[in-house]
Simulated scan of single mutants.
Amino acid sequence: MLQACLNGNASGVGVPVTPAALAADAAVARDLGVRHLHLHPRDAAGAETLQQRPTDAAITACREAAPEMSVGIGTGAWIAPGPKGRIDDLAGWRVAPDYVSVNLNEPDAPEVMALMARRGIGVEAGIWSDGDALRFCALALPPQTRILIEMPDAEDVDPEIDRICARLSTAGRTEPVLLHGEGVSAWPCLRRAAQEGLSSRIGFEDCDHLPDGTAAVDNVSLISAAAEIFRAAGRPLA
């Protein structure tokens, strides 16, 4: 499947920030055949937040605009006010997302995952390295919604992807895998995912350029290009 990652901590023209702008991009992604969202709510000043009111507003707006779509939220520890405040914020949501992404390179990842399990919210386990994969496998976690293999803005990320996949296979982890990159690794990772039958994602959170290197003017252009790659490989978008 293909996931639309609409904003993250990106900024600039075309990056959706308000609930209305996120909802508009969600509806367009839905019209292109995508059924999964990943977004980062923002507060009134445009900063990333996990506080209840802006998070609830973003989720509600997207569900009203595209009720067929699953909505996921990023929970990075860098989002103010930090790890302790993050747990309090996550516990305070009144409108729950379908899933959240949790980075295994963050110390309190197990606590965040446990809280989500108690709330009945799915988890995308974010793995950035073989070390993250080792920690994930050692935790003996129950099955997750999916595993995110996440690559940095760097060239030649294939060896690290191979190491992570081998680690997960050896440990018998069978969750669906979503492979994605950032910056220069975004399109190579998406192409590899399409070729290998994995899920992937695209949007302004991961890159601001099209496969040919030209600047992307909006999420629509990014998602359309990714959908073309998936369809050419015979892979489903939903």
Rank of each mutant, 00 (worst) to 15 (best):
V157K: 03
E205M: 13
E64V: 11
E155I: 03
R35I: 02
D212F: 09
H180E: 04
A133I: 09
S185V: 07
I229R: 07
D212E: 11
A26Y: 04
Q3L: 13
L39M: 15
A171Q: 04
R119Q: 15
A171S: 12
D98F: 04
D56M: 04
A238G: 08
E68N: 01
V28W: 07
Q51Y: 00
G72D: 02
E68C: 03
P54Y: 11
A117C: 02
R167Q: 14
V15K: 03
P152C: 09
A216C: 07
W187H: 10
E205Q: 12
C62T: 06
G122R: 05
V177C: 05
I127M: 05
R135G: 08
A215F: 01
A238E: 14
D208V: 05
D158E: 15
W128Q: 08
T75Y: 04
V15M: 09
L50K: 00
V28P: 00
G197P: 11
A225L: 05
R63N: 06
S101E: 05
I147H: 05
Q3S: 14
E124L: 14
A61M: 08
M116I: 04
G72P: 00
A66T: 05
A26R: 06
D158A: 15
A227H: 02
L50Q: 10
I87M: 15
R163Q: 12
A166E: 14
I223L: 13
A96I: 01
D162K: 11
R235E: 14
E196I: 00
A166F: 02
A77N: 04
A215M: 08
L198D: 04
G12P: 06
E64G: 10
L168I: 06
I147T: 06
A57D: 14
A21R: 13
D132P: 02
A154C: 06
P176K: 08
G12E: 12
V184E: 13
A20I: 02
A138V: 01
D206W: 03
E111L: 14
W128N: 11
S70L: 15
S224G: 08
Q195A: 15
Q144F: 01
A138Y: 01
V34K: 02
Q144T: 13
A10Q: 12
R63V: 05
N219T: 07
D218Q: 01
A96G: 01
L2C: 07
S101F: 01
N103I: 01
S199C: 14
A65W: 04
P107V: 12
A114P: 00
G120C: 10
I161G: 10
G213W: 04
D156F: 05
P188E: 10
R94M: 07
V100W: 02
E48S: 13
